[in-house]
Design a binder for these strands. Structure first.
Length: 342
DNA sequence: CACAAATA
DNA sequence: TATTTGTGG
């Protein structure tokens, strides 16, 4: 779930077309997981093709990306590689939560409690390697670049931004800020409406832009101190310290400094289950590569239709409008590169 | 979540 | 045109 530090991070809400002409390195796993868990029917059943293969992730990926491209955004997707060893505990925890949710889902369904079944279905959702492969195939047919990270996708995405090859990272999680991404975009969605947890109320959702410099400025901290805040409240690599949320962590960091200085100032931190300096290093020097290429291309309509319509039973007319949007985006990009020379 | 038809 | 509702695969 990433680091829970939202409440101390300044951000601004913008319109979707604020990102016109900008390249955004999207955390593929984060996005696909969201599609897989939310694109479901009332009882929690995901979308499936006639052979019973789940297609929720493909639906979300295709339609949303088409829309982003149409309005002139240049998305690229970054896929996770091997997680650091320190993440294994978190991975095992998540696996267990999913397994238990799956049991609860079946139970709720037997009792005819569809809404409850849906809740557990969302919680039990997990991406298979097949789904990831399908997503890469689809993106390639759409002319959308994707990058295979050696390690964490968010770390690789951040590296791409730091290299100047894209404008910002796209994810619901804040980890990329700790990995050094100067800009993070959340809620990069089309509809702008989301169901509030629990009630049947809907609230307007807008894209949010987080700028690392604004965060540093507001709290008078630096990247190492931001990482220290993360370590204190908990990351994918450690549980954090009980009773310390973002506000207390910020206070501590302002008093003591980065994680090394916090350790030296003793008290409390010794309850940490792993070496905090090791975690800091995972954020400061993550496993990333500069061996990637990012190129947007026109979509291949035949390939897209063969894959989505013939293989996975998508509606031909819907897919065609998606393709038209992608083609409109090609025009946007041509316009953009033309303007650079004027 | 996003699409598209129905409805206001 | 803007919002709601049922469906997509």
């Amino acid at each position: 779930m990433g680091v829970k530090i939202k409440e101390i991070l300044p951000f601004r809400e913008v319109e979707l077309d604020h990102f016109h002409g900008r390249e955004i390195a999207i955390d593929a796993m984060n996005t696909l997981y969201q599609f897989l868990s939310t694109i479901r029917q009332y009882d929690g059943t995901p979308l499936k093709d006639s052979e019973g293969r789940v297609t929720s992730h493909l639906s979300g990926l295709f339609y949303r990306t088409s829309n982003l491209v149409e309005i002139g955004i240049k998305p690229l997707f970054v896929f996770d590689g091997e997680p650091p060893k320190l993440k294994s505990k978190t991975i095992e925890n998540r696996r267990q939560i999913r397994a238990e949710a799956e049991k609860a889902r079946k139970k709720a369904l037997e009792k005819g409690k569809k809404e409850e079944a849906r809740k557990y279905a969302q919680r039990s959702a997990s991406l298979s390697s097949e789904m990831i492969g399908q997503s890469k195939t689809l993106l390639s047919a759409m002319g959308i670049p994707w990058v295979q990270a050696p390690g964490e996708g968010e770390a690789q995405a951040s590296r791409i931004i730091q290299n100047g090859d894209a404008w910002g990272t796209g994810s619901q999680d804040f980890d990329s800020l700790l990995y050094g991404s100067p800009v993070l975009v959340r809620n990069l969605t089309i509809t702008g409406k989301r169901k509030l947890p629990g009630k049947d109320k809907y609230k307007q959702i807008s894209p949010e832009v987080f700028e690392i410099e604004k965060i540093f400025e507001k709290h008078d901290i630096d990247r190492k101190k931001l990482i220290a805040i993360g370590i204190l409240v908990g990351t994918d690599y450690n549980e954090g310290i009980k009773g310390i949320g973002p506000n207390k962590a910020l206070k501590r960091v302002k008093e003591d400094g980065d994680i090394e200085e916090i350790i030296e100032s003793a008290d409390k931190v010794d309850v940490m289950e792993v070496d905090p300096l090791e975690i800091e290093k995972l954020f400061l020097e993550p496993d990333v590569t500069d061996d990637y290429s990012i190129k947007w291309a026109p979509p291949n309509p035949e390939e897209i239709k063969r894959f989505l319509c013939e293989k996975h039973d998508f509606s031909e007319s819907r897919v065609e409008t998606g393709i038209e949007r992608l083609e409109k985006g090609v025009g946007e990009r041509a316009q953009e590169s033309l303007e650079k020379w004027t």
